[in-house]
């Protein structure tokens, strides 16, 4: 589905990514880890279309990835993903309004009710059924990210891009959110790319783990070489219970 051939990305003299070659099949769940500034977010931007490759090709179904964001690639950022001036329900229905009302971006009458019903269903599936009238600033960080996910999925993208979506959340809430993403990934048959700085999260979630790192380094010119994918590991998805069992055995809690 997605293929990169000898992909490079520079900002001026600063090489961020180099020699990236990969193939991704439909339905994979890829987690990307690496030190900060290693280019994993840049790679996500290349997929999103807000940045273009300097050299090489990045293709989606054989065609170059479009050079602007579009419907087939949904996104959830770490923050600023939802619209602060709209209620929870409006944040989701606005996607349908964009679809059916090209000039005003507003829905009326039966079209509006239909969009609202659909949005309520989506909100229920992320656990926000009771919050539809609230504004984002009235939600907790976890609820806001749930909203961002519901919003991203309403127009049924094939690819879901997650840019450290749980980076600002508490560990307990993060575990709930990971469960949520996994269940939505299966339900909607998505291809997911997720950037995370939490290696544990990278190992636990998904089907495939990429580690971004520099293989060449020149101390006199730290920007001369970019990062590439140093590890491309298949990750067997484990049950949460099994994971906790193993985790407990490795790090026993002192009684």
């Amino acid at each position: 589905m997605i293929e990169a051939q000898n992909l490079w990305k520079h900002y001026g003299d600063h090489v961020v990514l180099e020699r990236i070659n990969l193939k991704v099949r439909e339905g994979e769940f890829i987690t990307m880890v690496g030190t900060s500034g290693c280019g994993k977010s840049t790679f996500l931007k290349l997929l999103l279309g807000t940045e273009g490759a300097t050299r090489g090709t990045l293709t989606l179904d054989g065609n170059p990835v479009p050079d602007e964001p579009g419907l087939d690639r949904g996104i959830v950022f770490q923050q600023y993903s939802v619209f602060p001036h709209l209620t929870v329900l409006e944040n989701v229905t606005i996607a349908r309004a964009f679809e059916h009302s090209p000039l005003l971006g507003r829905l009326f009458g039966s079209a509006k009710r239909q969009a609202e019903d659909e949005a309520r269903e989506m909100l229920a599936s992320v656990g926000l059924a009771s919050a539809e009238k609230r504004y984002p600033h009235e939600l907790s960080g976890g609820m806001r990210q749930r909203l961002a996910i519901a919003q991203a999925l309403i127009r049924k993208p094939r690819i879901l891009l997650l840019d450290e979506p749980f980076g600002a959340l508490d560990p307990g809430i993060r575990a709930d959110m990971q469960e949520l993403v996994l269940s939505l990934w299966r339900k909607h048959k998505l291809t997911v790319f997720m950037v995370t700085h939490d290696i544990k999260e990278g190992f636990y979630l998904g089907t495939r783990l990429w580690v971004f790192d520099k293989t060449r380094y020149d101390p006199q010119a730290p920007h001369a070489y970019g990062a590439t994918i140093t590890y491309d590991l298949p990750v067997g998805h484990m049950d949460r219970a099994l994971y906790e069992e193993i985790d407990d055995r490795l790090h026993p809690v002192p009684a």
């Binding site: 999103l48 807000t50 419907l71 996104i75 950022f77 993903s81 939802v82 619209f83 964009f98």
Partner: peptide, 8 residues
């Protein structure tokens, strides 16, 4: 960017 991914 989000709005664009929603088709705006």
């Amino acid at each position: 960017v989000k709005a664009q991914t929603l088709g705006a």
